[in-house]
Design a protein around this nucleic acid. Structure first.
Lengths: 160, 160
DNA sequence: CTACGAGTTCAAGCCGACTTGAGGTCAAGC
DNA sequence: GCTTGACCTCAAGTCGGCTTGAACTCGTAG
């Protein structure tokens, strides 16, 4: 298969041309050359874009993704980093699972106010949604979690 | 317990005062009144903030959260909506699980390039990371998924 | 040879969720 | 009565991941 122009890459991946240019600018993908002004892409870019999409779907930032993909454009990734990311995802999944349970429970819990329901409160605690020392049940701890948070972590502790 | 000023709410929840003002402006929380210029909050706001944190941790937008929390400030939420959100979370969890497996596998798969490994490709497919009709194995479908995407869904299909 | 359309560059805009900063107010303690 | 410092408002800034628009350049079909 010969080199493709940006439109074909876009068509085959569903990724808009503007995004492809943006990715190139960020160094996530590379064009093999130009014909006139036009970029030419090696078919291997399709794989790379699939991996990028995978990362994005996993909630990773573009910078993290480019750190995971090998610098030379091959797809050998750093094993340690991959495992770390998997662990991160694992924690996220556990948190989301707890939240899902909380929602399901809240949807059919007979308690007038969800917060009065021990099951719900437990789910909140598991969700690590923060320590909100609301009256009824004692204070609990929350370990720091991160979804897509940047600097600060509101929703997390700061014990007085 | 008497009404609290913004600093106390902040201290007890870990949510910065600026964020509390912002939430009030958006109608997510309400102050019960003022003493001079200063906002006063009913202790019930702590619960509400816990629920908001829960929603945020679940990846929901503030607008979605305020739609889930009752307009009158009580915490009765719309059951249908809650279930829908739980389902949404469920799909997200499944996707993330597939991605986690893909990462774990990639970390120790002997194949030189992950994309040549059927297990990895399968994980990508499950992840719904898009249809990237890379040569070796045939095209597959991806149903639209949404993490925190806004309008467009790059990474998803557009069969020619 | 020329016009066309698909590609290009670069700067600016957008969205959500906040944060920051300048300048103002006000209750309480000395 | 005055200072202090916590709180206030409002506008603007930030960050990531793109998109959009204006102005321009080419290869190719007619």
């Amino acid at each position: 298969m010969k080199d493709m122009d940006i439109a074909e890459v876009s068509r085959r991946t569903g990724v808009p041309a503007s995004t492809l240019r943006y990715y190139e600018e960020k160094g996530l993908i590379a064009s093999t050359g130009r014909r006139g002004l036009r970029r030419l892409f090696d078919p291997a870019v399709l794989e790379r874009l699939a991996l990028i999409a995978l990362g994005r779907a996993g909630g990773f930032a573009l910078d993290e993704i480019s750190a995971m993909l090998a610098p030379d454009g091959l797809d050998k990734m750093d094993r340690g980093r991959l495992d770390a990311k998997a662990d991160e995802l694992d924690r996220t999944i556990q948190r989301l699972t707890a939240i899902r349970e909380a929602l399901r429970h809240a949807a059919r819990c007979p308690a007038a106010r969800p917060m009065e329901c021990p099951t719900f409160r437990r789910a909140i605690r598991l969700a690590g949604a923060g320590r909100f020392d609301v009256a009824p049940i004692g204070p609990f701890k929350a370990e720091a979690v991160s979804v897509t948070r940047r600097k600060r972590e509101p929703g997390n502790v700061r014990l007085e």
